[in-house]
Amino acid sequence: MALLGPNGAGKTTLIEMLVGLTPPDSGAIEYGGCSFFTHKAEILETIGVQLQESTLYKKYTVRETLQLFASFYRGPTQEAALLTRLNLQEKADTRLEKLSGGQKQRLYLGCALVHNPQLLFLDEPTAALDPQSRRHLWELIQSLKKEGRGVLLATHYLDEAEFLADRILILDQGHVIATGTPRELISQHSRESQLDVQVRHLDREAWTRMQREFARLRLQGDLEAGWVSAAGEPADLEVLLQQLLAHHKGTVQAVTMRQSRLEDVFLQLTGRKIRDE
């Protein structure tokens, strides 16, 4: 499950409550009927956590770090297998201060995996990584999913959520505002399509009139840059497009019309609030 939300939505706070770091003001958190008050040790043995903005000992090597974390748990560990899995065999004896960002993130994930947990909580594991490293991490997470582990992944990358998550939970200002599979979210919240038109210069007069006439299509545009975007029923968009074409003969540079994606749903659900701030 992916936890989606803009900055400050409360993703980290939610995860910290779920792993017992922050007590909730109200409500209760239970793992199969066990709560942190009664079964803390048992719960901690079954969950693996990667916190946002958490660093490890710079002076330790990769192997030493994994050994340290493994020593906290009851069961035996197979560091060698884990190193291979993380693709860190060659870096096993390198100190953390010398690792690249991607290698570090993989090690952080590894620390959450040393005890073979059933449930994983990952807070923005791919923040600030290059596309290759992100892919690499995605594949790792996907393989964990295939092994039947539950993964709760906080992120604000929509492609990440779309790629990895079976279900998505959108959070905004501490409230759950939508949950479902990506497909469900799109069909529930956005039956509409998206139109983007790029012209050389937007005709001021026509633009003002269109804004009035097509208010419900949530028109946005820029006179100078010459772009227009709108979202709504495909039939309405078609009318808008015809008018735009009529007013800007010969200067149209690009037209795209597509079905909404998760990104549009996300912006639709959370975007307005950001602009209000």
Partner: peptide, 13 residues
């Protein structure tokens, strides 16, 4: 400061 103590708190240490 580096959140390492909280990271430990999520383990049975």
């Amino acid at each position: 400061r580096e959140n390492l103590l909280r990271r430990f708190l999520t383990t049975p240490l």
